[in-house]
Amino acid sequence: MQGLSRDDTAKLAGVDPEYVDRLLDLGILDADDDGSFRAGSPQRVRIVEMLEDAGLPLDGLGEALSRDLVSLDFIDTTSNNRWGSLTATTFEELSEQIGVPIELLAAIREAMGFAPPEPSDRIQEHEMEVVPLVQLQHEQGFRGAVVDRALRVYGESMRRVAETESDWWRSEVLMPIIQSGNDPAELYRASAELSPALANVIDQALLAIYH
Protein backbone atom coordinates (compact mmCIF):
# COMPACT_ATOMS: atom_id res chain seq x y z
CA MET A 1 0.00 0.00 0.00
CA GLN A 2 1.36 3.39 -0.99
CA GLY A 3 2.16 5.66 1.92
CA LEU A 4 1.02 9.21 2.50
CA SER A 5 3.11 12.20 1.56
CA ARG A 6 4.09 14.86 4.07
CA ASP A 7 1.54 17.29 2.66
CA ASP A 8 -1.24 14.68 2.55
CA THR A 9 -0.55 13.73 6.16
CA ALA A 10 -0.76 17.37 7.21
CA LYS A 11 -3.94 17.96 5.21
CA LEU A 12 -5.72 14.92 6.65
CA ALA A 13 -4.66 15.92 10.17
CA GLY A 14 -5.70 19.54 9.69
CA VAL A 15 -2.26 20.99 10.47
CA ASP A 16 0.49 22.82 8.61
CA PRO A 17 3.19 20.67 6.96
CA GLU A 18 5.72 22.33 9.27
CA TYR A 19 3.95 20.75 12.25
CA VAL A 20 4.51 17.32 10.71
CA ASP A 21 8.20 18.21 10.29
CA ARG A 22 8.41 19.20 13.94
CA LEU A 23 6.90 15.92 15.13
CA LEU A 24 9.29 14.06 12.87
CA ASP A 25 12.29 15.92 14.31
CA LEU A 26 11.16 15.14 17.87
CA GLY A 27 10.73 11.44 17.13
CA ILE A 28 6.99 11.58 17.80
CA LEU A 29 6.20 10.70 14.20
CA ASP A 30 8.02 8.21 11.99
CA ALA A 31 8.45 8.15 8.23
CA ASP A 32 9.34 5.16 6.09
CA ASP A 33 12.64 4.95 4.23
CA ASP A 34 11.11 6.61 1.17
CA GLY A 35 9.86 9.52 3.26
CA SER A 36 6.21 8.46 3.17
CA PHE A 37 3.92 8.14 6.18
CA ARG A 38 1.62 5.33 7.28
CA ALA A 39 -2.18 5.46 7.07
CA GLY A 40 -2.43 6.01 10.83
CA SER A 41 -0.04 8.98 10.83
CA PRO A 42 -2.75 11.68 10.47
CA GLN A 43 -4.56 10.25 13.50
CA ARG A 44 -1.32 10.28 15.47
CA VAL A 45 -0.71 13.91 14.52
CA ARG A 46 -4.22 14.92 15.55
CA ILE A 47 -3.97 13.17 18.92
CA VAL A 48 -0.57 14.72 19.60
CA GLU A 49 -1.94 18.15 18.71
CA MET A 50 -4.78 17.65 21.20
CA LEU A 51 -2.26 16.63 23.87
CA GLU A 52 -0.25 19.76 23.16
CA ASP A 53 -3.38 21.93 23.33
CA ALA A 54 -4.10 20.35 26.72
CA GLY A 55 -0.71 21.54 27.97
CA LEU A 56 1.66 18.64 27.26
CA PRO A 57 4.98 19.97 25.89
CA LEU A 58 6.04 18.27 22.68
CA ASP A 59 9.70 18.06 23.62
CA GLY A 60 8.73 16.26 26.83
CA LEU A 61 6.55 13.83 24.89
CA GLY A 62 9.36 13.19 22.43
CA GLU A 63 11.79 12.43 25.25
CA ALA A 64 9.32 10.12 26.99
CA LEU A 65 8.79 8.21 23.74
CA SER A 66 12.53 7.86 23.16
CA ARG A 67 12.95 6.41 26.67
CA ASP A 68 9.99 4.02 26.21
CA LEU A 69 8.17 5.63 29.11
CA VAL A 70 5.05 6.08 27.00
CA SER A 71 3.87 4.71 23.68
CA LEU A 72 1.53 5.90 20.96
CA ASP A 73 1.56 2.56 19.16
CA PHE A 74 -2.06 1.95 20.18
CA ILE A 75 -3.06 4.50 17.54
CA ASP A 76 -1.79 2.19 14.80
CA THR A 77 -3.88 -0.80 15.93
CA THR A 78 -6.87 -1.87 13.85
CA SER A 79 -9.32 -0.95 16.60
CA ASN A 80 -8.26 2.68 16.35
CA ASN A 81 -9.04 3.14 12.67
CA ARG A 82 -12.15 4.87 13.99
CA TRP A 83 -10.04 7.95 14.66
CA GLY A 84 -11.31 9.56 11.47
CA SER A 85 -9.19 11.94 9.47
CA LEU A 86 -10.47 15.23 8.16
CA THR A 87 -12.17 15.31 4.77
CA ALA A 88 -11.65 18.05 2.21
CA THR A 89 -15.24 19.30 2.71
CA THR A 90 -16.17 22.07 5.12
CA PHE A 91 -19.41 22.24 7.07
CA GLU A 92 -20.50 25.19 4.97
CA GLU A 93 -19.78 23.38 1.71
CA LEU A 94 -21.59 20.24 2.83
CA SER A 95 -24.61 22.28 3.92
CA GLU A 96 -24.83 23.82 0.46
CA GLN A 97 -24.33 20.47 -1.27
CA ILE A 98 -27.06 18.51 0.52
CA GLY A 99 -29.42 21.29 1.60
CA VAL A 100 -29.20 20.64 5.34
CA PRO A 101 -28.91 23.67 7.65
CA ILE A 102 -25.39 24.10 8.92
CA GLU A 103 -26.71 24.19 12.50
CA LEU A 104 -27.86 20.57 12.20
CA LEU A 105 -24.55 19.46 10.73
CA ALA A 106 -22.69 21.25 13.52
CA ALA A 107 -24.83 19.38 16.05
CA ILE A 108 -23.14 16.15 14.92
CA ARG A 109 -19.79 17.33 16.25
CA GLU A 110 -21.33 18.76 19.40
CA ALA A 111 -23.07 15.44 20.08
CA MET A 112 -19.64 13.79 20.02
CA GLY A 113 -18.52 16.04 22.84
CA PHE A 114 -16.61 18.71 20.94
CA ALA A 115 -17.02 22.46 20.64
CA PRO A 116 -19.28 23.74 17.86
CA PRO A 117 -17.38 23.92 14.56
CA GLU A 118 -16.91 27.01 12.46
CA PRO A 119 -18.52 26.98 9.00
CA SER A 120 -15.03 26.83 7.47
CA ASP A 121 -13.96 23.81 9.57
CA ARG A 122 -13.54 20.57 7.65
CA ILE A 123 -15.82 17.71 8.59
CA GLN A 124 -14.27 14.49 9.85
CA GLU A 125 -14.64 11.11 8.18
CA HIS A 126 -16.59 9.54 11.04
CA GLU A 127 -18.88 12.58 11.22
CA MET A 128 -19.72 11.96 7.57
CA GLU A 129 -21.19 8.61 8.59
CA VAL A 130 -23.83 10.41 10.67
CA VAL A 131 -24.77 12.86 7.91
CA PRO A 132 -27.16 10.49 6.01
CA LEU A 133 -29.31 10.16 9.14
CA VAL A 134 -29.54 13.90 9.64
CA GLN A 135 -30.14 14.47 5.94
CA LEU A 136 -32.98 11.93 5.77
CA GLN A 137 -34.66 13.33 8.87
CA HIS A 138 -34.42 16.85 7.48
CA GLU A 139 -35.83 15.79 4.11
CA GLN A 140 -38.73 14.09 5.87
CA GLY A 141 -39.62 17.32 7.65
CA PHE A 142 -38.27 16.53 11.12
CA ARG A 143 -38.02 19.64 13.26
CA GLY A 144 -34.47 20.77 13.91
CA ALA A 145 -34.93 20.60 17.68
CA VAL A 146 -35.95 16.94 17.42
CA VAL A 147 -32.93 16.04 15.28
CA ASP A 148 -30.62 17.93 17.63
CA ARG A 149 -32.05 16.21 20.72
CA ALA A 150 -31.71 12.76 19.15
CA LEU A 151 -28.05 13.38 18.32
CA ARG A 152 -27.33 14.57 21.85
CA VAL A 153 -29.05 11.54 23.38
CA TYR A 154 -27.00 9.22 21.17
CA GLY A 155 -23.82 11.06 22.11
CA GLU A 156 -24.54 11.09 25.85
CA SER A 157 -25.37 7.38 25.82
CA MET A 158 -22.12 6.58 24.03
CA ARG A 159 -20.18 8.67 26.54
CA ARG A 160 -21.61 6.55 29.36
CA VAL A 161 -20.60 3.41 27.48
CA ALA A 162 -17.08 4.80 26.96
CA GLU A 163 -16.74 5.73 30.64
CA THR A 164 -17.80 2.24 31.71
CA GLU A 165 -15.38 0.60 29.28
CA SER A 166 -12.59 2.84 30.53
CA ASP A 167 -13.32 1.80 34.12
CA TRP A 168 -13.20 -1.94 33.47
CA TRP A 169 -10.19 -1.62 31.16
CA ARG A 170 -8.33 0.03 34.02
CA SER A 171 -9.47 -2.39 36.74
CA GLU A 172 -9.48 -5.67 34.79
CA VAL A 173 -6.68 -5.24 32.26
CA LEU A 174 -4.20 -2.56 33.32
CA MET A 175 -4.15 -2.94 37.10
CA PRO A 176 -3.44 -6.71 37.11
CA ILE A 177 -0.44 -6.09 34.84
CA ILE A 178 0.82 -3.21 36.98
CA GLN A 179 0.35 -5.15 40.22
CA SER A 180 2.21 -8.13 38.78
CA GLY A 181 5.33 -5.98 38.46
CA ASN A 182 5.67 -6.30 34.69
CA ASP A 183 7.42 -3.54 32.78
CA PRO A 184 5.40 -0.86 30.94
CA ALA A 185 5.98 -2.58 27.61
CA GLU A 186 3.58 -5.30 28.75
CA LEU A 187 0.82 -2.69 28.93
CA TYR A 188 1.42 -1.78 25.31
CA ARG A 189 1.42 -5.42 24.24
CA ALA A 190 -1.84 -6.05 26.08
CA SER A 191 -3.46 -3.09 24.36
CA ALA A 192 -2.22 -4.13 20.93
CA GLU A 193 -3.43 -7.72 21.35
CA LEU A 194 -6.69 -7.26 23.24
CA SER A 195 -8.07 -3.98 21.90
CA PRO A 196 -8.88 -5.17 18.34
CA ALA A 197 -10.64 -8.30 19.58
CA LEU A 198 -12.67 -6.39 22.15
CA ALA A 199 -13.58 -3.62 19.73
CA ASN A 200 -15.14 -6.08 17.29
CA VAL A 201 -17.26 -7.93 19.84
CA ILE A 202 -18.28 -4.74 21.66
CA ASP A 203 -19.52 -3.17 18.42
CA GLN A 204 -21.48 -6.33 17.68
CA ALA A 205 -22.93 -6.48 21.19
CA LEU A 206 -23.98 -2.83 21.24
CA LEU A 207 -25.76 -3.18 17.91
CA ALA A 208 -27.54 -6.34 19.10
CA ILE A 209 -28.65 -4.68 22.36
CA TYR A 210 -29.91 -1.64 20.46
CA HIS A 211 -32.05 -3.80 18.20
Rank of each mutant, 00 (worst) to 15 (best):
T78R: 15
D33C: 10
P119Y: 02
D16N: 11
Q124D: 13
R152N: 13
E118C: 07
R82M: 13
I108H: 02
S191W: 06
S95E: 03
E96C: 05
T77A: 05
S79H: 08
M128E: 08
G155R: 08
D32W: 08
M175N: 08
N182S: 15
Y19W: 06
S191V: 11
G3M: 06
G14E: 03
L56Y: 11
Q137D: 08
L133E: 10
V134M: 02
A199H: 11
S66H: 11
D7I: 10
V201I: 11
I102C: 10
S180V: 04
G181E: 06
P184Q: 07
A106H: 08
A13Q: 02
D148P: 04
E52I: 00
G62A: 01
E49S: 12
S120Q: 12
Q140H: 14
A106G: 14
V146C: 00
E92A: 14
L187T: 01
G141Y: 07
I108R: 01
D33T: 14
I28V: 15
P119D: 06
V134F: 01
V146L: 12
L194M: 14
V146F: 09
N80C: 13
D183N: 15
T89D: 03
I202F: 14
A106S: 15
R46G: 09
A208M: 12
L174G: 00
I98T: 04
I108Q: 00
L58T: 03
M112P: 02
Q124Y: 12
A205P: 00
V48A: 02
L136A: 15
A190L: 05
H126C: 02
S191D: 13
R170H: 11
A31Q: 11
Q204L: 09
R82Q: 14
V15F: 03
V100I: 08
Y19R: 10
V153Q: 14
R152K: 15
R6V: 05
L29W: 01
D33I: 13
A13F: 03
L133A: 14
I98N: 00
V130H: 06
M175V: 10
G62V: 01
M128W: 05
G35S: 10
V201W: 00
V201L: 03
E63D: 12
G113M: 08
A111K: 01
L24D: 02
H211Y: 12
R159V: 09
D76G: 12
D73W: 00
S95N: 05
A150P: 00
T164E: 11
A106M: 05
P17Q: 04
L69S: 06
G141E: 09
R149E: 15
P117N: 05
L26E: 06
T77K: 02
F142W: 15
A39P: 02
L174P: 01
E49P: 01
Y210C: 05
D8R: 11
P132H: 08
S36G: 09
R67W: 07
D21P: 03
I202S: 10
L26R: 04
G144N: 10
L86M: 10
L207C: 07
N182T: 11
R143S: 05
